[in-house]
Simulated scan of single mutants.
Amino acid sequence: MTPKIIRTIVELRQAIAEFRKLSEDNRSVGFVPTMGYLHEGHASLLRQSASDNGLTVLSIFVNPLQFGPNEDLDKYPRDEERDIKVAATAGTNIIFIPALSEMYPNQALTHISVSEITERLCGASRPGHFDGVAIVVTKLFNIVQPDRAYFGLKDAQQLAVISQMTQDLNIPVEIVPCPILREEDGLALSSRNVYLDEDQRSQALILSQSLSASTDWIQAGISASELIAKLKAEISKAPLAKIDYVDVLTYPNLSQLNKDRPLNENNNDLLIAVAVYFGKTRLIDNRLLNPVEVGEGLCFAK
């Protein structure tokens, strides 16, 4: 299948309206918003959408509003030709690739902020990041008007923020979370992995290894503060690792826990999340689980 490449909002809306008008069977529209440089994780979202819906729309737009002053906006990897090939093999029907001037023809005077759940983890170390995510995702939802939108659990905080935003604003779209995809050695797939040199790539495996070990530590009855300390100590064994944060929170409301209470006595779903720099490359990873099920040997990490 060769996807249709669309670069303007008007043309995209016309194409989707035509599909809904003419389709006789599955008229639902699935949507996967991305910043491009697609990998197998993105492809898995597109395949899921293609399985669930009659039309799958992919957007590729590097959104400047979610980058801070010292972040990698200018260096963010871009490869449109490669992205189109990946999208084509995953069953994508339409690829929306707008220019900056198409998405933001004028200075935006409207702001969307989700409070509380944006104040921790990446929100604490990247102020304003989720405001940028909220405005661009809202714009894209209004442009595409999908029935379902697909997001990976690797950025679990982003997923929580978007889910809360769509609920609060009554945006009529189903948010579909999809599992983290990893390389064979465990490294979570990320567009930023291309920045890692050989030593950094090798040492970055400490993230998935430490998170995997957390299941056994929780089963042994450690508290949140003890788990955080053990994760930091484990990650610090990699000489090139510079920890941004390590935390354990309830999910999806990202509230703080009693840090001294054994985690295996907690009935809430928990997010164990880490962000670590290897050189100038910031990687995130997480493990989502339920302590009671861990105690029964039924960890549902995603």
Score class of each variant (00 low, 15 high):
residue 9 I to R: 07
residue 291 P to C: 03
residue 158 Q to Y: 03
residue 218 I to F: 06
residue 136 V to R: 07
residue 9 I to G: 02
residue 265 E to Y: 04
residue 220 A to H: 11
residue 23 S to K: 07
residue 153 L to A: 01
residue 177 P to C: 00
residue 148 R to Y: 04
residue 124 A to H: 08
residue 140 L to K: 09
residue 158 Q to A: 06
residue 169 L to G: 07
residue 4 K to W: 05
residue 154 K to S: 03
residue 97 I to K: 11
residue 293 E to A: 07
residue 108 A to R: 12
residue 170 N to R: 10
residue 60 I to Y: 04
residue 268 N to R: 08
residue 35 M to L: 05
residue 286 N to W: 04
residue 64 P to W: 09
residue 90 A to I: 05
residue 271 L to V: 14
residue 24 E to T: 15
residue 157 Q to W: 04
residue 257 L to A: 12
residue 118 T to R: 09
residue 193 N to H: 06
residue 59 S to M: 06
residue 202 S to W: 02
residue 32 V to S: 12
residue 264 N to T: 04
residue 156 A to V: 06
residue 254 L to Y: 14
residue 202 S to V: 03
residue 150 Y to D: 05
residue 112 I to H: 01
residue 121 L to D: 01
residue 27 R to C: 13
residue 50 A to I: 04
residue 220 A to F: 04
residue 110 T to L: 14
residue 221 G to D: 13
residue 194 V to F: 02
residue 10 V to D: 12
residue 115 S to M: 10
residue 60 I to S: 03
residue 191 S to K: 03
residue 230 K to Y: 03
residue 202 S to N: 11
residue 45 L to A: 11
residue 93 N to T: 13
residue 87 A to K: 05
residue 50 A to G: 03
residue 140 L to E: 02
residue 281 T to G: 08
residue 265 E to V: 00
residue 238 A to N: 14
residue 121 L to W: 06
residue 125 S to Y: 12
residue 155 D to N: 05
residue 73 L to H: 07
residue 104 Y to K: 12
residue 279 G to R: 11
residue 282 R to Y: 05
residue 245 Y to D: 06
residue 163 S to K: 15
residue 215 T to A: 14
residue 45 L to V: 08
residue 272 I to L: 15
residue 200 Q to I: 01
residue 62 V to K: 07
residue 52 D to C: 00
residue 197 D to I: 04
residue 281 T to D: 02
residue 67 F to Q: 03
residue 98 P to H: 07
residue 14 Q to T: 10
residue 221 G to T: 10
residue 230 K to G: 01
residue 181 L to H: 13
residue 44 S to H: 11
residue 296 E to V: 00
residue 169 L to I: 02
residue 38 L to K: 07
residue 36 G to E: 05
residue 23 S to V: 13
residue 291 P to A: 02
residue 220 A to Y: 10
residue 128 G to S: 10
residue 254 L to N: 10
residue 295 G to V: 10
residue 59 S to F: 09
residue 266 N to C: 13
residue 149 A to W: 09
residue 210 S to G: 15
residue 140 L to V: 02
residue 57 V to K: 08
residue 227 L to C: 11
residue 226 E to M: 13
residue 177 P to R: 06
residue 259 K to L: 14
residue 59 S to R: 10
residue 273 A to F: 09
residue 1 M to K: 14
residue 132 G to E: 03
residue 47 R to C: 07
residue 174 E to M: 06
residue 66 Q to A: 11
residue 167 Q to W: 06
residue 174 E to Y: 01
residue 251 Y to H: 12
residue 118 T to V: 01
residue 72 D to K: 03
residue 281 T to H: 00
residue 187 L to P: 13
residue 222 I to A: 02
residue 291 P to I: 07
residue 183 E to G: 01
residue 235 I to S: 13
residue 96 F to A: 06
residue 278 F to W: 13
residue 160 A to Y: 10
residue 50 A to Q: 04
residue 198 E to H: 10
residue 110 T to R: 06
residue 256 Q to G: 03
residue 95 I to E: 08
residue 219 Q to R: 15
residue 134 A to P: 00
residue 46 L to V: 14
residue 46 L to E: 14
residue 235 I to G: 12
residue 150 Y to I: 11
residue 88 A to T: 13
residue 185 D to M: 01
residue 144 V to T: 05
residue 154 K to E: 09
residue 246 V to C: 12
residue 251 Y to Q: 01
residue 89 T to N: 12
residue 59 S to W: 08
residue 5 I to F: 02
residue 82 R to V: 00
residue 234 E to I: 00
residue 28 S to M: 07
residue 250 T to R: 12
residue 65 L to H: 09
residue 250 T to Q: 08
residue 42 H to F: 12
residue 47 R to N: 11
residue 141 F to H: 07
residue 40 E to H: 14
